[in-house]
Design a protein around this nucleic acid. Structure first.
Length: 566
RNA sequence: CGGGACGUGGCGCAGCUCGGUAGCGCACCUGCUUUGGGAGCAGGGGGUCGGGAGUUCAAAUCUCCCCGUCCCGACCA
């Protein structure tokens, strides 16, 4: 490609509304342009990176035994109602009404369609199967953000495995997990596999691949001493033992104006936060529920959702809380409460001498024995892990790292197979539902994740495997005929060697060309100018470290090939 | 959906408080000079000031409604 013909509108200034590094640089470098919130056009450079990322994903999926499909992006509403996800997905699905008035869904993932196709797998002898596609997904995200990191229309490689039993699923899960490790390795992304929540996908277990980055949206709890790592939504930690206070009797005492845990610590007759019960009034699918955690802990909403199986979880409004318990938030508690579902964090199990709200403004209880005084329906992990708490497997302090979710793989089980009647005959002649797994990677998000982790003050620094061009030949002066001739010859030579090379033949000042080449992040630059050329040499610059060496014109092609293959 | 900010040539911004000429930098076009790290001078083109309604002799500026975008929280590849 000759730069004089390339549409790469580079900008000196980043758009004012861009915050994330990848967003700024991809816009500045002329890789992407926004159409509207959550929808981006990929310009030629952006598309080149995209296709290289896509090719790596495809190669590794094929190597793992995957078979590529291409499914419709638009589905009849009926299939989504059949799986139950019409309701689960709620406002996040794009619904399109056709001329007949029928509802259609723009696909968010394709479990339903693949499960339908899997009806034609009829014997265990055909198993296992790994099916995948690379296709556009639509999700009406409540808040698209950060350029390509979170959008409403994007391309996903979604794969699905089909097995006779859980053991088969486990095997495929591990196989594809390994494929993912190889993919992220080739993309030069430091993605760590972590335990995760399955969320709306359902299923028994899942692993996320997390790339540490301040532009991410997830927090990962990680141990530096062992290999424990989990999304905060699934994480746990070891806590030091606490001793109950010796308060055998339940006593109601006045707490005028006390509305917070901190205030209750300070008031006459109060208690340290870890001797308190925090009572959160939550609404789960329309049903008011009390969620109890220790006073110094935070409720994790995802854990509450996962633990209860609810699809919609939100805090109650102060008015709803008052209607349910008779007091405003700040004086709420679960002592003696009947008729409401009560779930509690296991850290509270067996504890006594606690302090909590009395469901009467300005009054609290002390001496609460949770087993005696609170009708807990279910104990479930509900609390956030905090940095510095001890690792459950080795005891070392945990850290919390902000991450981009680059990939997510799920053990789905049989739910979709049962919904769509995807059964096979087993060796004993019994019909059994297929056991499924699902495996997703967002292509654009990974392009952004690479950008987010590969840049400096001068611009992007693409890994050669995904760079829009592997090398750029910069002609310092178009007026110097010898330079032009040498550049043209080298350009032809590199193309013949199947190197992705860009020839900067623009009639611009050298400084502009250097700055642009660095901004768009081409990993290797060959500068051809009169100075070195007089000695039969060119300059070879590595984008990552800026190191420049003089190389003979006759040796540069081999040196570049060595750099690219090394 | 809750909270905050913003919307003025392709990009970044000023002008709005106090209504009256739409301006600056970058980019773009022409010419001359320049030419190894985002050149200089001269000339030039381009803007329904997000949209609608209202107030007014007069609205980018004041009022109301709507739309859009970004950021922070609840969701996900």
């Amino acid at each position: 490609m000759r730069w004089s013909n390339l549409h790469t509108p580079t900008l000196r200034d980043a758009p004012a509304d861009a915050e994330a590094a990848s967003h700024k640089l991809l816009v500045r470098g002329g890789f992407i342009r926004q159409l509207h919130a959550g929808h981006y056009s990929l310009l030629p450079l952006g598309w080149r990176v995209f296709t290289k990322v896509e090719a790596i994903v495809r190669e590794e999926m094929d190597a793992a035994g995957g078979q590529e499909f291409r499914l419709p992006a638009m589905h009849p509403a009926s299939i989504w109602k059949k799986s139950g996800r019409w309701d689960v997905m709620g406002d996040e699905k794009f619904v399109v009404i056709d001329r007949k008035g029928a509802e259609n869904v723009l696909g968010m993932t394709h479990e339903e369609i693949f499960a339908t196709l899997a009806q034609e797998i009829t014997s265990y002898k055909s198993l296992p199967q790994i099916w995948y596609q690379i296709q556009t997904k639509f999700r009406d995200e409540p808040r698209p953000k950060s350029g390509l990191l979170r959008v409403r229309e994007f391309t996903m490689k979604d794969a699905y495995s089909f097995d006779l039993d859980e053991a088969g699923l486990d095997k495929n899960f591990d196989l594809l997990r390994d494929a993912y490790v190889r993919i992220f390795d080739r993309l030069d992304l430091p993605a760590m596999p972590v335990e995760a929540s399955s969320g709306a996908m359902g299923g028994s277990g899942s692993t996320e691949f997390m790339v540490p980055s301040p532009a991410g949206e997830d927090d990962v709890v990680r141990c530096n001493s062992c290999d424990y790592a989990a999304n905060v939504e699934r994480s746990s930690s070891a806590l030091p033992a606490v001793t109950d206070r010796d308060l055998p009797d339940l006593i109601k005492f006045p707490t005028p104006g006390v509305r917070t845990i901190a205030a209750l610590e300070a008031v006459e007759g109060g208690a340290p936060s870890h001797q308190q019960i925090k009572t959160m009034v939550m609404v789960l699918d329309g049903t008011t529920t009390l969620a109890l955690v220790r006073g110094d802990h935070q409720l994790n909403m995802q854990k509450l959702q996962d633990g209860t199986g609810a699809t919609d979880v939100r805090p109650a409004t102060p008015e709803e809380a008052e209607a349910a318990l008779g007091a405003m938030p700040g004086s709420l508690g679960a002592v003696g409460v009947k008729g409401l579902r009560i779930v509690a964090d296991p850290v509270l199990q067996g504890r006594a001498g606690l302090t909590t709200g009395a469901n009467e403004d300005d009054w609290h209880y002390r001496g609460v024995n949770i087993e005696r005084d609170v009708a807990v329906d279910e104990w479930m992990d509900l609390r956030d892990v905090s940095a510095g708490e001890a690792c459950i497997s080795c005891g070392a302090p945990l850290e919390i790292v902000r991450c981009i979710e680059s990939g997510h793989i799920f053990k789905l089980g049989t739910m979709y197979a049962e919904a769509f009647g995807a059964h096979v005959m087993d060796p004993d002649g019994n019909q059994r539902p297929l056991v499924m797994g699902s495996y997703g990677i967002g292509i654009e998000r990974n392009v952004a994740a690479i950008a987010e982790t590969h840049y400096d003050d001068n611009g992007l620094i693409w890994p050669a495997a995904v760079a829009p061009f592997e090398a750029v030949i910069t002609v310092v002066s178009l007026k110097d005929e010898a330079s032009v001739a040498a550049a043209d010859a080298l350009y032809s030579e590199l193309k013949a060697k199947r190197i992705d090379v860009l020839l900067d033949d623009r009639d611009a000042r050298a400084g502009v060309k250097f700055a642009d080449a660095e901004l768009i992040g081409i990993p290797y630059r060959i500068t051809i100018g009169p100075k070195a050329l007089a000695d039969g040499e060119v300059e070879f610059t590595v984008r990552a470290d800026g190191e420049t060496t003089r190389v003979g014109l006759d040796a540069i092609a081999d040196q570049l090939v060595a750099a690219l293959t090394g």
